[in-house]
Computed example of a mutant assay.
Amino acid sequence: MTPKLIIFDCDGILVDTEKAANEVLSGFVSRAGGNISPDQCHLRFTGRTLDTIKTLLETEEGLILEPDWADQVRAADLVAFEKGVDAIPGIEAVVQAVRANGISYCVGSSGKYEKMHATLGSAGLLPLFKDVLFSAQDVPNGKPAPDIFLYAAKGMGVDPQHCIVIEDSLPGLQAARDAGMRAFGFTADPLADEAKVRALGATPFKAMADLPALLGLETPA
């Protein structure tokens, strides 16, 4: 069934920000007395909001974090992203194929609007997405709750059953499943677990070049 709406996650799907962001996060954890490597940050926290991560660090690691800790991390992320952010290889061709097939698309991200504007702008993708951005800052619960994807679908005027989500995180894929949407999990990262992607009912794929065919799209000549 051809979708009516494709919802893209932002970090790790549109822009390559996660290495820098996880290094920043690991540093903040270390300064708070914890010890979580950038790779472990990636495995444990990718796809979640910083407010959720703060709660997890306090409850699971016993860290005592300042009330504005999440805002401090966001500010440090923006400084790191000023060094430059690359688009995920092949994503522009995917978006062009979606547009050529007359299918609506948008972004549904755990990141705040300021971050999306900064990263998409740096990667040269903002003109494609600036009018169709949806952030978890506007919903009660971040991923793995389905709120952001349901919010995006409602904002675009499409029923969830007619939506497809493109994600790279397990919390994001769980959110898509619980929203009643089909999902494709990007597993190019060496740390990605295809078995867990499939367990969440999603279809794994390793290269953006493969995605148009998986979506049943005709590609522009």
Rank of each mutant, 00 (worst) to 15 (best):
H162A: 13
A70M: 04
L170K: 01
I164E: 08
F28C: 11
F8A: 05
A188V: 04
D71I: 12
T203H: 11
A195C: 02
Q174S: 08
T59P: 14
A188T: 07
L57H: 12
V29C: 10
Q161A: 15
D16F: 07
A145N: 07
W69G: 10
P171K: 03
V24M: 11
I148V: 15
G180M: 13
R198M: 09
A209E: 10
K83A: 15
E167H: 04
A176S: 02
D138Y: 11
V165M: 01
P220G: 02
F129K: 00
A93S: 14
L217A: 06
S37Y: 05
G62C: 12
G155E: 08
A192E: 03
L126R: 03
L25V: 05
G111W: 01
K206D: 08
V98P: 11
D77G: 10
N101Q: 07
D178Q: 08
A188Y: 03
V139T: 02
L215D: 01
T52P: 01
M156G: 08
I64K: 15
C41W: 01
A221D: 14
D168V: 00
G121Y: 14
G157D: 11
G185C: 05
T52S: 08
C10Y: 00
E82L: 14
P160W: 11
G84P: 13
C41N: 02
R31C: 13
A213H: 04
F45S: 04
E60I: 13
E58L: 10
A209D: 03
T187D: 08
E218D: 15
D193M: 06
P190E: 12
S26F: 04
F81A: 06
D178M: 07
F184L: 03
P89V: 01
M208I: 06
F45L: 10
D77P: 06
P3V: 03
P144Q: 12
V94M: 09
R198W: 05
A20M: 07
D11N: 15
E61W: 13
V79F: 09
A100L: 10
P3M: 05
E58C: 07
E18W: 02
V132T: 11
Y113T: 04
V98I: 15
V98E: 01
A21M: 11
S109H: 03
L200F: 02
Q40K: 13
E61S: 12
L65V: 04
T46N: 10
K4E: 14
T49E: 02
V158C: 02
L200G: 00
N35W: 08
A179Y: 02
V15N: 08
L63G: 03
T219C: 14
C163V: 04
V73H: 06
E66I: 14
D189C: 04
Q40I: 08
A179N: 06
V94N: 11
D71P: 08
K196D: 05
G216W: 07
